[in-house]
């Protein structure tokens, strides 16, 4: 039986989680995690995330700035509230809300490993949950 390799998308705020494609080149992000830059985590879009799950992505995480340290004042808290809304909808339709998570880090943490750690943690969690559609 082939090993389940979850398809994951990691959204990240351009100001904190990381910062340039060069920087991503320095850390080895697992190949099953697709990175997607946001102007701010507050740019996270509910419909876009749902359609991403609809298309068969097994897990999504968002890396934004630490609480009260958003460069755009409250983009990170907006992202968290939108993720909570998405979690609610996922639960209503029978999908584990664990399939989406938010990680917060210090702004300007240019060489932080949070994205990498989030990739590993979500990968482990989603492997445990199995594919979104059986």
């Amino acid at each position: 039986m082939p090993v389940f390799r979850p398809k994951i998308i990691g959204y990240y705020c351009q100001y904190c989680a990381y910062l340039s494609d060069d920087n991503f080149g320095k850390v080895k992000i697992p190949s099953n995690v697709k990175k997607c830059k946001l102007l701010c985590s507050g740019k996270l879009d509910i419909l876009n995330i749902l359609e991403t799950f609809e298309s068969g992505i097994d897990g999504i995480f968002v890396v934004g700035c630490k609480e009260d340290e958003c460069r755009n004042i409250n983009g990170n808290s907006r992202a968290s509230r939108r993720v909570n809304y998405i979690k609610k909808i996922l639960e209503q339709i029978g999908i584990s809300s664990e399939r989406i998570a938010v990680y917060n880090i210090e702004p300007e943490s240019l060489f932080s490993n949070v994205f990498l750690e989030a990739s590993a943690e979500m990968g482990k969690k989603i492997r445990g949950l199995g594919p979104i559609y059986k």
């Binding site: 509910i46 419909l47 749902l50 799950f53 609809e54 909808i89 209503q92 339709i93 029978g94 559609y133």
Partner: peptide
């Protein structure tokens, strides 16, 4: 429009499951 699109997407996922 957005909310009904969100509902449509959620329903599509529900039936896919």
């Amino acid at each position: 429009e957005r909310e009904s699109e969100i509902l449509a997407s959620a329903l599509r996922m529900f039936f896919k499951l």
